[in-house]
């Protein structure tokens, strides 16, 4: 196990390095003098000189890359042109909304996806199975922002059941009722991935249900619920977990648009704002944070598998 962890950790470090390099190269592609681009049109010569000192924009490219990397390790992702504050701090302020939205969307994914998949696998070709298949197809084809807008029309506009937009911090106000604002966005965001998880849960459950130990368990006279939940679902868990861990990237992508639809003050709406305002340091900071998070999550998932299934360690 130890050597497996070391190998995967080394892989993770290489990926992080590459992610940092790619963002660096991308930012080199912006036309114009970097210091004036980063400071915006109203910069003074003193500010430009100071920025050149921190990031070394007037030095050779390798020195720049070195400084960029050192700054990254120190957690210095630069300063936002628009907010005039360190990028990392702004991302931190916006993180709460996105994290809560992500958790709630994940609850939709798991809470809808796994039961739906299990039911479809237990009764293959039944109406439940067919409608699940259709729903899964629809889920994969409906853009999450459109679904969000439609939910808004129905639940906020017509039925007045849930708020349609905005979000105030639960942590700052201590008011849990604010989470109501995230229900519609979380559903819009989670539905697509729930469909995917349901499909995977169905097919891996179908594989497992054919196994001999299921027949044995049934022959022992165990109740169906015990056989399905204890013997089958546990063994079908690995592929399902994989798909759930894949949903991270797709949840982040979806969140960018969903936060925008529901006017939520999260990291997703921050990047859109920054693109519209050409706030390059913020764009770059968000890219880095999200990609590094992705690499780390992959690492943790891989370790979890290796822990759950010893065969993986020896591959």
């Amino acid at each position: 196990m130890f050597s497996y962890i070391v190998r995967r950790a080394a892989g993770m470090v290489v990926s992080v390095l590459l992610v940092v390099t790619i963002t660096f190269i991308l930012m080199q592609l912006i036309p114009g003098d970097p210091a004036s681009v980063l400071l915006g049109p109203n910069a003074t010569p003193e500010q430009i000189a100071a920025l050149n000192r921190t990031w070394g924009f007037d030095r050779p490219i390798l020195v720049q890359f070195y400084k960029y990397f050192v700054n990254f390790l120190r957690g210095n992702l630069g300063e936002s042109i628009f907010f005039r504050q360190p990028v990392l701090r702004i991302i931190g302020q916006r993180a709460e909304t996105s994290v809560f939205l992500g958790i709630m969307a994940l609850m939709v994914v798991v809470g809808l996806g796994i039961p739906a998949g299990v039911i479809a696998a237990v009764r293959p070709n039944s109406w439940v199975d067919t409608s699940l298949l259709l729903l899964a197809l629809a889920g994969a084809s409906i853009p999450s922002f459109w679904l969000g807008l439609m939910l808004m029309v129905v639940f906020a506009g017509k039925l007045h059941l849930l708020p349609s937009s905005g979000y105030t911090s639960v942590i700052a106000t201590g008011n849990l009722a604010n989470l109501k604002n995230l229900i519609l966005p979380a559903f819009a965001l989670g539905f697509v991935n729930a469909a995917l998880v349901a499909r995977t849960a169905r097919s891996s459950m179908l594989d497992v249900l054919r196994a001999d130990y299921i027949t044995t368990a049934q022959a022992k006279g165990l109740r169906d619920s015990v056989v399905i939940l204890k013997h089958a679902l546990r063994n079908a868990a690995i592929p399902i977990t994989t798909v759930i861990s894949f949903t991270f990237a797709s949840l982040v992508s979806g969140a960018v648009v969903t936060e925008n639809v529901f006017a939520l003050p999260g990291v997703g709406s921050l990047i859109v704002q920054s693109v519209l305002k050409r706030d390059y340091p913020t764009i770059q900071g968000i890219m880095l944070v999200v990609a590094v998070l992705y690499v780390v999550i992959n690492f943790v998932t891989d370790l979890t598998y290796a822990f759950l299934d010893p065969r993986i360690r020896y591959r």
Partner: peptide, 18 residues
């Protein structure tokens, strides 16, 4: 693999900005 660590829409948005 490193390119795929950037979620689709984030990479596309950044490229549009650049």
């Amino acid at each position: 693999d490193a390119l795929m660590a950037f979620p689709a829409i984030i990479l596309a948005l950044a490229l549009m900005a650049i």
